[in-house]
Design a protein around this nucleic acid. Structure first.
Length: 733
DNA sequence: TTCCAACTGTTTTTT
DNA sequence: ACAGTTGGAA
């Protein structure tokens, strides 16, 4: 049968396992996703499962999407209504369907990390807590760490006064969120876990429904996610878990590899299936990866092999500086291009984002197109955050975080003083800022600017009630003053474009079919349909569509950046590269302190995680792997001397080839390239000029065009200055 | 309210 | 080095 064609014996065994819980230890490049999707197809095709009894969970939206795409290619099934998604996405779905039972408002909103941090800062302020003694970031880590373990504030041991205070703040934060109708990422999971735990009819309903639970990247699950899965799996359910302990690189955010061993025990896994044949890399690359990872003590044990030949040696380059490292990589990339390798099939991997700058600079000067992954995401942009805050207020005016973001943006004369008054009222009466504003209006003491703001939100709210989603967004943008504000701002064009893109995103967003509407009647305290009049039904529809769109914005923040464009070199951190593969891979910055990172030895088993990270990096390469390190590097504005990473020494020397450049080191150009370059204004970089007041100098940079054009001039005596070409009388010399 | 200078904290990151 | 934030002055 075509479904099973080209599967190796282990893959076939995994795909056709009987109905029992199973653990598949799938090495890098061993066809993990293929096994997972073929297993689903197998279950459906043999009649063991209907699409409604399947529950498949991944970590990233990308992986979930990939699974659905492959599945529809294999089987003619309707994936709508199937429970396939990320942990957070599925938890969100559960909570939306049972918001009453979960104790949430229907329009509850999701806080991303930045929103959460903002909420915590606000909390500390209202409680008058010293944020130097209790840093918001630390509090955030404290709370999320505990939630990831399934622990509420009242369930923790606080042996010392400091921890007791943190515990108090945790409780206060949860109260604040509840009051405002918002949940953070960890709360999505914890809340849905508690929902199932405390609501027996609901739990039993889902337990009897989901007979087949499939989990991708199982090594990345945290304690709570595992508990969640255990709760969801009823007596007749089988969990099909796929993972690779050697690729566990998220311990720092709570991932617990120990879940794999617990799973074997808790679910009486009869035998673990190992997928060890690699279909991706040449032999030398695999041998290097295997040799490296053997240095880790805590492993389940696994050795990748390939029937492919050894291939090229792994290239190792020692650079005098980070600049030289970058220029070496540029040369190598050009050579690969000449060999006919597409730029999109070449990856430049680094340990930390800060390293990309030097590389980008060199690539830019060499005119090599490149794309950096993991930069600022679409939904993280300031203007988008502002727009979303208005939308959130339309859905739920009690959302203090959203209100604070836009109450004076664009500026409408509500300063710190009036805000403080509002916050006082809110604190004293335990109400939201929105309610405080209304109370103040009633008492007749509010400034007119506050009336303008509440009036604006009210009018947006009523205007949007009758509009389809994209027009709600459009209306909000036009009437909130956001568009007008960015039209005035001189560099606001990009922002306006992004705001327009938000309308497109809304137009492209289709409300997911609610397969669980019938479940609403299960909850005893849900409102019977008869009690809702037509108006409130319509209202509920518009708010829930909006709420779903906003949830989508929080949960899939990264998806919008993936615009497939022209052929470009791929730059990303090693973390971001997991799951991807390339013809050629460069791993740079292989220095002690950088990779492994110096902070890693502070954490327990930190070094082993760094080694797994290096293992992930190596196994991304299909054919050519180049590793480089630099003797000196600029770090935090200081020159640092480095030595080669211990990981280099853990690679078998016979697999390595030290290479030297054809170009002598002294020929390497420094960062500044003095070659003349035309600016938009007709002046060019490197041009000698003179100025009536500052004397002679050289143009070293330029920006803007037309009336805004400016050039940066390095004067012999007067130093470096930016000059507006419209005013400064520059003379060519 | 707005602007600029001083200060700070810089591992990885998805949701 | 550098970006983001905060505090004080205008």
């Amino acid at each position: 049968m075509t479904l099973y064609q080209n599967l190796n014996p282990e893959q076939l065994a995994a795909v056709t396992l009987p109905h029992e819980s199973a653990l598949i230890l799938a090495g890098a490049g061993s066809g993990k996703t293929r096994v997972l999707t073929t297993r689903i197809a197998h279950l459906i095709q043999t009649g063991q499962a209907s699409s409604g009894s399947l529950f498949a969970v991944t970590f990233t939206n990308k992986a979930a999407k990939e699974m659905l795409t492959r599945l529809t290619a294999m089987l003619p099934i309707n994936t709508r209504g199937m429970w396939v998604g990320t942990f957070h996405g599925l938890a969100n779905r559960l909570l939306r369907a049972h918001f009453r039972d979960a104790g949430l408002p229907q329009t509850f909103q999701i806080l991303d990390s930045a929103d959460q941090l903002g909420a915590l800062k606000r909390l500390l302020k209202t409680l008058n807590v010293d944020d130097e003694k209790y840093p918001p970031k630390q509090l955030q880590g404290f709370i999320n760490g505990l939630k990831d373990q399934g622990l509420r504030a009242d369930k923790i041991d606080a042996p010392d006064p400091w921890t007791r205070k943190m515990q108090q703040l945790y409780a206060a934060y949860d109260e604040q969120c509840q009051r405002e109708g918002v949940v953070d990422f960890a709360e999505l999971l914890l809340r849905s876990y508690e929902l199932l735990l405390n609501n027996a009819p609901l739990r039993e309903h889902y337990q009897s429904r989901f007979k087949h639970i499939l989990v991708d990247e199982f090594q990345d699950t945290n304690h709570l996610q595992y508990q969640w899965l255990k709760l969801l799996a009823g007596a007749q359910a089988a969990i099909f878990a796929v993972g690779d302990d050697d690729q566990s690189i998220y311990a720092f955010r709570g991932a617990r590899v120990g879940n794999m061993a617990d799973f074997e025990r808790d679910f009486q896994v009869a035998k673990v299936i190992r997928l060890e044949q690699n279909y991706r890399s040449h032999g030398n690359i695999l041998d290097a990866a295997n040799a490296l990872i053997r240095n880790n003590q805590t492993r389940l044990g696994k050795n990748l092999w390939t029937s492919d030949h050894a291939g090229e040696a792994i290239r190792v380059f020692e650079a005098a500086s980070d600049f030289e490292e970058a220029s070496f990589i540029v040369d190598e990339v050009k050579a690969l291009q000449r060999e006919g390798v597409a730029l999109s099939d070449i990856a430049l991997l680094y340990r930390s984002n800060a390293q990309s700058r030097v590389l980008e600079h060199a690539l830019f000067n060499a005119a090599i197109p490149y794309r950096v992954y993991g930069g600022l995401r679409f939904f993280d942009r300031q203007e988008i955050k502002h727009a979303l805050a208005y939308l959130r207020l339309i859905g739920n005016p009690d959302d203090d975080g959203a209100l604070l973001r836009v109450i004076n943006f664009p500026a409408r004369g509500i300063g710190a003083r009036s805000l403080e008054q509002l916050q006082d009222i809110a604190r004293q009466s335990g109400i939201s800022l929105w309610q405080a504003a209304q109370r103040k209006l009633l008492s007749g003491k509010a400034g007119s600017s506050i009336a303008v703001f509440t009036g604006l939100i009210e009018s947006l709210r009523s205007a949007c009630a009758d509009l389809p989603l994209p027009e709600q967004v459009e209306h909000m943008l036009a009437h909130s003053g956001l568009i007008a504000h960015y039209e005035k701002e001189k560099e606001g064009e990009d922002r306006l474009e992004n705001l327009n893109e938000l309308i497109n995103a809304a137009a492209g967003f289709v409300l997911e079919a609610e397969p669980e509407t019938e479940m609403l009647s299960l909850s005893p305290n849900s409102l019977p349909r008869g009690e809702r009049d037509a108006d409130s039904l319509r209202e509920i529809h518009f708010t829930s569509e909006l709420a779903a769109f906003l949830a989508h914005a929080s949960l899939e923040a990264g998806e919008h950046q993936a615009i497939a464009g022209a052929d470009a070199l791929q730059l990303m951190t090693v973390h971001a590269a997991k799951g991807l593969e390339f013809h050629a891979v460069f791993i740079c910055g292989l220095e002690e302190g950088l990779f492994p990172h110096e902070n890693s030895n502070r954490e327990k088993d930190g070094l082993e995680e760094e080694r797994r990270l290096m293992y992930v990096a190596i196994t991304r390469a299909r054919r050519r792997l180049t590793i480089s390190f630099a003797d000196t590097r600029m770090l935090h504005g200081q020159l640092r001397y480095g030595i080669a990473s211990r990981f280099l020494e853990e690679l078998p020397p016979q697999l390595l080839k030290r290479i030297n450049r054809a170009v002598p080191v002294f020929a390497v150009q420094p960062a500044f390239n003095p070659k003349p370059r035309e600016t938009d204004s007709g002046w060019h970089i490197g041009q000698a000029v003179s100025h009536a007041k500052f004397g002679h100098g050289l143009i070293i940079d330029s920006e803007g065009r037309g009336a805004d054009a400016r050039v940066q001039v390095s004067f012999n005596d007067a130093g470096v200055k930016w000059l507006a070409l419209e005013y400064a009388k520059l003379e060519p010399r």
